[in-house]
Design a protein around this nucleic acid. Sequence first.
DNA 1: AAATTCTTTGAGACTCATTCTCAACAACAT
DNA 2: ATGTTGTTGAGAATGAGTCTCAAAGAATTT
Lengths: 144, 144
Amino acid sequence: MSSNKNNLTKILKISGLRNTPQRQAILDELNRTRDHRDVEEIYFSLKKKGIKVSRATVYRTLELFVNHYLIRRLDLGEGKYRYESRESDHHDHIVCLDCNKITEFMNNRIEELQEEVAQENGFFLKRHVHQLFGHCLNETCPNK
Amino acid sequence: MSSNKNNLTKILKISGLRNTPQRQAILDELNRTRDHRDVEEIYFSLKKKGIKVSRATVYRTLELFVNHYLIRRLDLGEGKYRYESRESDHHDHIVCLDCNKITEFMNNRIEELQEEVAQENGFFLKRHVHQLFGHCLNETCPNK
DNA sequence: AAATTCTTTGAGACTCATTCTCAACAACAT
DNA sequence: ATGTTGTTGAGAATGAGTCTCAAAGAATTT
């Protein structure tokens, strides 16, 4: 935590930026879990903890962190973004159409094929968006 | 054209819906090209052709057609949807980060692996979103 | 520790895509 | 042709995200 704080302060300083309680709290909040959170969830989590922060700051800070590769931004086709910690490795997502459960997956062969496809089409691949949507077989899922 | 009109009329009738000049025009407009168009583009194309239509109708009709598998809806991460004809086969997209050129691709092995991944994770796969983003090697692209 | 500098924040206005409301309109069956 | 009922248009409403600007507060300097 305290080493984390120093970390963030250092990273920001390189770009002439300052660390603040709000920035630290937002990063800690995302790193605390592997969840995929949207802005409202993050905003209210911080509020509940008594941290003084505005929505504008949450939006600005998340964008800042995405640009500095401190967190990842997800677009799961909901009309809004979700954010996740970068403490886990790269992965893509399967989403249940019934209960919205988000499961992470990683397939090396698919990753390789994406590179091949990009090359074949004359592209230098920078990133990808890959989501599977389906029905999960969970007992607790409303479709069962 | 006229067989097309009869077609759409029949399809809609099955669900107790009616064909209208607006609906026919929107479907024709999308089927006319392989392009990936957003609502404003479609709306203004129709306006330019002198077709009386409102944005609300364009939105409603596109959703109706997506639900009836007459067209496909694309989310290329732009904060708005694009729509394309279903006269082409299934494919995914590579988007150039510099010139926004959209290239279609289709890789059978990736499609198979998506099925495997879904199965491994206890999902019955319904659909997927798969986009690659990179830099294209086009002469006309602003990054060259 | 105080002064200085310059970044950051909060509140609310604003934008943009999309959805909703409802009265007027118009397909289609009979 | 007429009636029933689905459809449209105009604009209000919504929701996510961005912008503005004065006040607040990091970090540096004295």
